[in-house]
């Protein structure tokens, strides 16, 4: 019984829903502020993302007549639940690497596919042609970016000789961060490209493309449901970089200077994402899929070959 309460706390408060969503909204403020400074603008005040969310909660919920009722409402919550679960798993293992179960990285990679699937489901069930088009693009993009990423993660498995996140972190605590090896650097680069696509940032925000299909799958969402999606996306902005830090960069620590160091790692990845976002135009879906299946997959294979050669 006590365990159950602890699990619920981990899921709902720390490091699950509440912590990650708050942190995610701060990250979205960093995103907006840095983008604004790059574009010679002033940018929003610190609490703007919270105000936005608060405003969305107060708004009327409109469910279009063409929508398939329940699916339309449930989809965002499924995405949110999956992201919270992800956050609690990654968070707990980072706090205490002993606390693990066999094959948890596979579970994490699997869970990470659920938020895009939720977006696709919600888009298709809204009954809007533009949303269907956006969902269609999201499927294609997902097929594109998951293959090289899984190759990169498998490279890590072989290097460490384990498929458990706790053991990967412990290995790095003993031998130093995996990034010190050239092969892992290449795999990390692949993962960064995956991150850009996963977070739906330019140049891979093809499924939302506001000037082409008007936010795609989100077009019919309004009010609280849109707010749920916003929170989900904000949480993904925390969870995905956190996972990359865990498997490539020695994980995060909550003691002493480790906190500062962890935050710096995190900010580095986020700022990199923002800079890529602000210096590129949006690509076409066929160009994106070709890019991921061609160059990026090649890069992942090179990483694997380098790793087997011992680099």
């Amino acid at each position: 019984m006590e365990n159950l309460v602890l699990y619920l706390l981990a899921f709902l408060v720390f490091p699950g829903f509440l912590f990650t969503s708050t942190f995610g909204l701060v990250v979205s403020w960093i995103d907006r502020k840095v983008s604004a400074r790059i574009q010679w603008r002033v940018g929003p005040p610190f609490f703007q993302p919270f105000y936005d969310l608060f405003k969305l909660w107060q708004k009327e919920l409109i469910i279009p007549r063409s929508a398939k009722g329940m699916a339309f409402i449930i989809a965002p919550f499924i995405g949110l639940a999956a992201t919270s679960l992800l956050a609690s798993i990654i968070g707990i293992i980072n706090l205490n690497p002993e606390y693990q179960f066999v094959g948890d990285v596979i579970v994490i990679v699997y869970l990470m596919m659920i938020p895009p699937l939720a977006i696709i489901w919600g888009g298709f069930s809204s009954g809007n042609p533009l949303a269907a088009l956006g969902a269609n693009r999201e499927i294609k993009l997902m097929m594109g970016y998951e293959l090289p990423f899984i190759l990169a993660v498998v490279t890590v498995f072989f290097k460490v000789g384990s498929i458990s996140l706790g053991e990967i972190i412990q290995y790095q605590q003993v031998h130093g961060a995996l990034l010190n090896h050239p092969s892992m650097l290449v795999a990390f680069a692949v993962s960064l490209l995956w991150l850009q696509a996963k977070l739906g940032e330019i140049p891979f925000d093809i499924s939302e493309a506001e000037c082409e299909i008007m936010e795609g799958p989100f077009i019919e969402y309004s009010g609280p449901l849109l707010g749920v999606y916003k929170v989900m996306m904000a949480m993904l902005h925390v969870v995905c970089p956190w996972f990359l830090i865990s498997i490539f960069w020695g994980g995060t620590s909550m003691q002493g200077w480790g906190i500062l160091w962890s935050v710096l790692k995190f900010v580095f990845i986020i700022v990199l994402v923002i800079i890529i976002k602000n210096t590129n135009p949006r690509v076409r879906i066929d160009q994106a899929v070709k890019f991921f299946w061609g160059w990026v997959t090649l890069l992942a294979l090179i990483a694997m070959v380098l790793m087997f050669l011992g680099y």
Partner: peptide, 13 residues
Amino acid sequence: AGHFIGYNTVFMW
């Protein structure tokens, strides 16, 4: 044009 292809930096500059 920059804005339409998602290149907001060009737009603002």
